[in-house]
């Protein structure tokens, strides 16, 4: 039985659940980004575990890890850009005060 794989997947599930909770419950833009980072980290962990325990011959899996890391970096860059724009125009990055974005 693939106990190492299952343990890793359960840890990734814990990170995913924590990230979902954080992204939905926080009112601050930077804290919401932290939740999304945790969700993406859970995805990274799953990718590495699948590569290591199921298909170590398929090196493309490691490339997918690099792509997810790119997504994390892009999310941070754009998120901080939005945060700076929001802070300069409204003086706050609290999402409770961003109700006009609902349209």
């Amino acid at each position: 039985m693939a106990i190492e794989l299952i343990v890793t997947l359960i840890m990734a599930a814990g990170l995913f659940g924590t990230g979902v909770y954080g992204a939905l419950s926080q009112t601050n833009l930077v804290m919401i980004m932290m939740g999304i980072e945790l969700i993406l980290a859970a995805g990274l962990l799953n990718l590495v575990a699948f590569w290591r325990y199921l298909h170590p011959e398929a090196i493309e899996a490691q490339m997918f890890v690099l792509i997810v890391m790119t997504v994390m970096a892009v999310e941070m860059a754009v998120g901080f850009g939005v945060a700076i724009a929001r802070f300069r125009s409204r003086g706050s990055v609290e999402m409770e005060e961003a109700r006009e974005l609902k349209g």
Binding site: I10, A13, F16, L24
Partner: peptide, 28 residues
């Protein structure tokens, strides 16, 4: 600095439970 606590907690637990069930029940 939190809002919609129950919804968030429910969604987090549901996500964890779903992913854990998949990890345990799938034939790897």
């Amino acid at each position: 600095m939190k809002h919609q606590r129950k919804l968030s907690l429910g969604a987090g637990i549901l996500a964890f439970a779903g992913a854990t069930a998949l990890a345990l029940l799938a034939d790897w």
